[in-house]
Amino acid sequence: MYPAPFRYHRPANLKEAILMLSTLGETAKPLAGGQTLIPILKLRMDEPTDLVDIGRLPDLRFAKNEGGWVEIGALSPHGWVARSDIAKAIPIVKDCAGGIADVQVRSRGTIGGSVSAADPNCDWPALLNTLDAEIRCAGPEGDRTIAIGDFITEAYTTALQPGELVTSIRFRTPPPGSGGAYIAYKKAAAAFPVVSVGVQMTVAAGNVCQDVRIALGGSGPKPRRAVQAEAELRGKTLNSQAWQHAADAVAAVAEPTDDVRGSSEFKRQLLRGLLLKAGDTATRRCANATIEGSHVYA
């Protein structure tokens, strides 16, 4: 399968990339890892006239934890992030990055490409909602920082303006006593998640939930916060009753569609189970337990 012909450009730096994209106009597209874009081009679902290869732009592959913020460069591949010190220190990041697709896709696909593609089932957008992340962008009008909830506007659509690029993603360094877990249910490695759940929480003495954020993937046109489920847990003792109430709230807020991956009812049941599993792992990680956990395969 061949994409329609296109012109290929490889800018030397970010400034040049932005200039190229804004000069070439809306029929030009950035190419990062290509793990979403190339399959789309091969199916001729899109026929850009120009591809601007940002894949090798210097300085956009990094992961750092400084001044209370974790920041990950847009061109950091999933596999690279999974092996980074950030993933070691913050296991929910490893859950997500190390569980995306297969090793080959993780070699090439980038976090910046994943949020820009804004696929409702993709892992990074759901995780970044869990962590209340911000997306940093650079464009012809200058730089700006957009909350993840505003960045993804609907399925496959973002707030990016023509010529604008994602440069990094950042979120607050999780405080001591906090822990998180992200679990996606997939039918195979090289398949998008059916649904996913991220839980990031802080547990105080006496097993009381001090703070919690819960986000769901594959449960609507964009990742959604489960605000009511959070309310069922916040300030409460974390017993099985509290978690059951949270699971009910997750199932109630999710709006998964019936599709080849399963019926909406099946997905709601999955979400309940994933919440309980992610909640259990997150709670134990709050107490510094080491738990390797990632995607649940069918």
Binding site: Y8, G34, I38, P39, D53, V105, S107, R108
Partner: peptide, 10 residues
């Protein structure tokens, strides 16, 4: 890498 999901120019 999957060589069907990369361009030679890359």
């Amino acid at each position: 890498v999957k060589s069907c999901t990369m361009f030679a120019v890359q």
